[in-house]
């Protein structure tokens, strides 16, 4: 079966390594199958560029199944595109129409310096994890089932927070380029479970300070992060982070 194809005009942010300024350049994407993902569409454009001996468009990707957090670009003003709870690799071209003009830009934040084209350096998120996003005890082998009773509600809330893939779309979406949704998810996944409690106070304090130090903006509760997060991380996690942080500071 031959699937439907569409033709698109892309305006892609191009900026070489070390270049101070970038620019939007126009490309045409022809005969794009609507069954392709957004990244596969970019692959097609890149093959065409290679054939014409032109520099390919650099973009990050790895798993291409929405679980690794490597991909991401701002598509027509929306991080990971306009589909709800979808990573760029899982955004399919059937959500676009023939003749569409698509503007593709990298995540924009002072804390995410641009490497090349659509690729930004998200090490700041790693620095935040290194500041406290872990448990220091040796967990040993898997414990007996129900040895540590945890209610279904708590387990689910922790699991939902742990669904964060660290893609940085929340930072890209936030009008203030704040990383609070990411940090709140990472703090919550530990703070909710007994294994994470002993270090909860120190974790909240060090991770928030590292977040500030990395040059992210401050949270204004705009809730754009929640609207754009591909994993549906809730801002109730941000409230939990505020609680954990203030509790830790005042005790």
């Amino acid at each position: 079966m031959i699937s439907k194809t569409i033709n698109l005009t892309l305006k892609v942010w191009r900026q070489n390594r070390g270049e101070k300024k970038g620019r939007l350049e126009t490309y045409s994407a022809k005969n794009i199958s609507v069954d392709m993902s957004f990244l596969e569409m970019l692959d097609v454009v890149n093959e065409e560029l290679t054939k014409n001996k032109k520099e390919t468009i650099a973009f990050d990707h790895d798993c291409r199944e929405g679980i690794c957090g490597m991909c991401g670009a701002v598509v027509n003003g929306r991080p990971h595109g306009h589909e709800k709870e979808t990573t760029l690799c899982q955004l399919h071209m059937r959500h676009f129409s023939d003749g569409d003009i698509i503007v593709i830009e990298p995540w924009r934040a002072r804390a995410f310096p641009l490497i090349k084209d659509l690729v930004v350096d998200r090490s700041a998120l790693d620095n935040i994890i290194q500041a406290g996003g872990f448990i220091s005890v040796n967990a040993g082998g898997a414990p007996d089932a129900n040895a540590l009773p945890i209610s279904k509600e708590i387990a689910e809330a922790a699991f939902n927070a742990a669904a964060c893939i660290g893609c940085g779309a929340c930072v890209a979406a936030c009008p203030n380029a704040s990383a609070m949704l990411f940090v709140s998810a990472k703090v919550s996944q530990f703070a909710l479970l007994p294994q994470g409690r002993p270090e909860a106070a120190r974790r909240a304090r060090t991770m928030v300070r590292m977040m500030d130090q990395c040059g992210f903006g401050n949270c204004s509760n705009e809730t754009e992060c929640e609207a754009e997060c591909p994993k549906g991380i809730s801002i109730s996690n941000i409230a939990r982070l505020n609680r954990e942080f203030l509790k830790a500071e005042f005790s």
Partner: peptide, 27 residues
């Protein structure tokens, strides 16, 4: 806070659309 938040994104988006979180009040 307002000035700090402006500095946190030195290069703005060419196309900037809302995802449905922002309100007239918050913006």
């Amino acid at each position: 806070l307002f000035l700090q938040n402006l500095q946190a994104r030195p290069i703005r988006y060419t196309v900037d659309k809302r995802g449905g979180g922002r309100t007239i009040g918050s913006a």
